[in-house]
Simulated assay, not measured.
Amino acid sequence: MCAVGAAWRIHDRAILDALGWPPATRLGIRGVDDGVRLVAWAEHGIAEVNTNRYFRVPFRQRRRAELHIGDKVLLVAHLTPDHLAIYPPRALHAFFGNHRRLLEA
């Protein structure tokens, strides 16, 4: 889990280290089902890993995913193809909404 930081920063050193993404790594960010953002290395990517080990989600992608500063997101790394999935609150609610209702009953 990670909170979306100021200026829409995704900052999780452990995940970036596990993926092997050093500073200056260019990243492509695209949307998939349910507002999930899929991040992967891309030669002409639209985002870049900063020297402080974070990257920013650009406006168009965060708007589609309905990401806001302070939102808690689930980060899931797939190490073989070096992909990172970002599950925004909307996707988490869709996945776990029924389980929450069961706990409240």
Rank of each mutant, 00 (worst) to 15 (best):
L74K: 02
Q61V: 15
A42L: 08
Y54C: 13
A14Y: 04
R63F: 08
A77C: 08
L19H: 03
E43A: 07
H83N: 05
A65V: 07
A91Y: 00
I10E: 12
G20T: 11
R101Q: 15
G70D: 09
P23R: 04
T51R: 13
I69T: 15
H99I: 04
D34C: 05
Q61H: 07
V32M: 12
G35D: 03
L103P: 00
R62T: 11
D12H: 13
V57T: 06
R9Q: 15
L16V: 04
D71K: 01
A6W: 05
L74C: 06
A7P: 00
V39N: 00
G20K: 05
A40E: 15
D82Y: 05
R64F: 08
V32D: 09
L92I: 05
R13V: 14
A91H: 01
H78N: 11
L16K: 05
H44D: 15
T80H: 07
T51L: 11
H99W: 08
A6N: 08
D17H: 08
D34R: 02
A85P: 00
P58D: 14
A105P: 01
M1T: 01
I46K: 01
R62A: 09
R101K: 13
D12W: 04
L102W: 11
P81Q: 08
G31C: 09
L38I: 08
Y87Q: 02
G5S: 10
G45N: 06
A42F: 02
N98H: 09
A24L: 13
T25K: 01
P58W: 14
L38Y: 00
A65Y: 06
V49R: 05
G70T: 06
L74A: 10
T25Q: 12
I10Q: 04
L16N: 04
V57I: 15
K72H: 08
E48Q: 10
P81W: 09
E104Y: 08
F96A: 10
L84A: 04
T51N: 12
A77M: 07
H44R: 06
P23K: 05
G70Y: 05
W8G: 00
H83T: 07
H11T: 11
Y54P: 00
A24Q: 14
L92S: 02
R13P: 09
F96K: 04
R100G: 13
P81I: 05
R64Y: 09
R60S: 07
E43D: 11
P58S: 14
A24E: 12
H44A: 11
E66F: 03
L75Q: 03
P58M: 14
L74V: 06
P22N: 10
T80A: 15
H93Q: 08
G31T: 10
I15A: 14
K72E: 14
G5I: 13
A14E: 14
I15W: 00
I10K: 01
T25P: 05
C2D: 10
L38W: 02
G45A: 02
G20E: 05
A85Y: 11
G31M: 13
R60V: 09
L92W: 01
A94D: 06
L74T: 03
G20W: 09
A7E: 15
A18Y: 01
A40R: 04
V36Y: 01
T80F: 09
R13N: 11
R26K: 12
N98L: 13
A3I: 09
I69F: 00
L19W: 03
A24I: 02
Y54A: 12
G70W: 04
F55D: 12
A91L: 04
G31V: 00
W8A: 11
N50D: 15
N52E: 13
R13D: 15
